[in-house]
């Protein structure tokens, strides 16, 4: 652990951003390894509880993407 790396819990919509992440993957695109993806069936599934739970358990940031 030479340098601190943030942990970003990402709630991605199955149909939008998760698809985008998938496409980024198959296109062999490079991006920061700091995100931890949680796939949700739809952004409508998102709840403030999730964000707080993530922060409580030690996430450095929360990202919600539809």
């Amino acid at each position: 652990m030479s340098e601190w790396e943030p942990k970003i819990v990402s709630f991605l919509c199955n149909w939008c951003s998760y698809g985008a992440a998938d496409l980024a993957g198959v296109s062999r695109m490079q991006y920061a390894p700091n995100i931890r993806v949680v796939r949700i069936p739809c952004t409508g599934r998102m709840s403030p509880k999730f964000a707080l739970a993530a922060l409580r358990e030690g996430a450095d940031a929360v990202w919600v993407s539809g």
């Binding site: 939008c16 951003s17 496409l23 990202w63």
Partner: peptide
């Protein structure tokens, strides 16, 4: 906390 909108 961030919010964004990205199509698949």
């Amino acid at each position: 906390i961030h919010f964004s909108w990205i199509s698949s």
